[in-house]
Design a protein around this nucleic acid. Structure first.
Lengths: 155, 155
DNA sequence: CTAACTCGGATATCTTCTGTCCGAGACGAC
DNA sequence: GTCGTCTCGGACAGAAGATATCCGAGTTAG
């Protein structure tokens, strides 16, 4: 039950890209966060495939947000990097073994799956309720408006 | 973001153990669910270490619930098998790199972590709200009271 | 037209999960 | 009391996924 560590990088990058107005190369983002550039590239490619960020190729290229930050949820980023499939997969144990439940009695999902699925939905709902713009607002509330000004200047 | 597959086995076993009145050997539980006995043993050992089930050694030994099923939550089982640490671990990226946030400004956890942690709490709350007894009730509601009678006879 | 810079996918390494095995201990039968 | 059998418990390989890296294809600026 461990999430890919790249999710954290991807979220921070999304917040930074929201502050920037010009495309930012992957190498610059890696330097800013002091992480492996080669590996961060992988996460950014995943975000690009999910159409969360857009890649601009060529000399002054880089990445930029593909949509307004208010319409990018944290769940979008998590699913893009870590995969959209739910954490719990029901293998229909009840239909196996000597006392297998007959398939015709399995019109409803099994109780174990229902409980796990409800928790998964709650988790996703919580992540869907927060957008990248919300995160940016929180950063301002914590560290002041100057934080992003500094980042913009450094990029 | 994938959960250990053994969690499903452990939950089903807990429901079965709730129905049984005598200790049930791990091999019997494995046969009932048609899964690897050797690997299921690993999950049961984890439940035993967490004091969710109790092991009875010797000739007529096996496993039995250590507490009433009404006081065993699904979260207890999940944490015992899959680990209690949260899925998201904050590596304090904001304190790294050329524009690192100074430690004295980090009295509050970073916004990214706050969002992920809130979702994790929601997930845990949902799992904590369901007990093994609830799952057993759901099985009865789905398949009738006869299901457990059959299991008891087979054990 | 050249050249430099960018992304993108294909490629090794490594930790974690999955699956298996045999030994220590305990109960019941005799 | 002793033996035999059955049980759990932790130690041991194999597979899968995550981590980290590299070089080639394409594009833009000068």
């Amino acid at each position: 039950m461990k999430m890919s560590g790249g999710v954290e990088w991807a979220l921070h990058c999304a917040v930074v890209l929201n502050a920037a107005e010009r495309p930012v190369p992957a190498a610059r983002l890696a330097e800013l966060h002091d992480v492996s550039a080669s590996y961060l590239a992988k996460q950014l490619q995943a975000l690009s495939r999910a159409e969360i960020i857009r890649s601009v190729q060529g000399h002054a290229g880089g990445y930029e947000l593909a949509r307004p930050a208010t319409s990018i949820t944290v769940l979008d980023v998590v699913e893009a990097v870590d995969g959209a499939q739910p954490a719990f997969v029901c293998t229909e144990i009840r239909q196996r073994g000597p006392l297998a439940t007959p398939p015709e009695a399995c019109d409803k999902p099994c109780p174990v799956f229902r409980a796990m699925n409800a928790a998964d939905q709650a988790w996703r709902a919580a992540l869907r309720a927060v957008t990248i713009a919300d995160l940016a607002d929180d950063v301002v509330a914590d560290n002041g408006e100057g934080a992003f000004t500094l980042v913009r200047a450094w990029l």
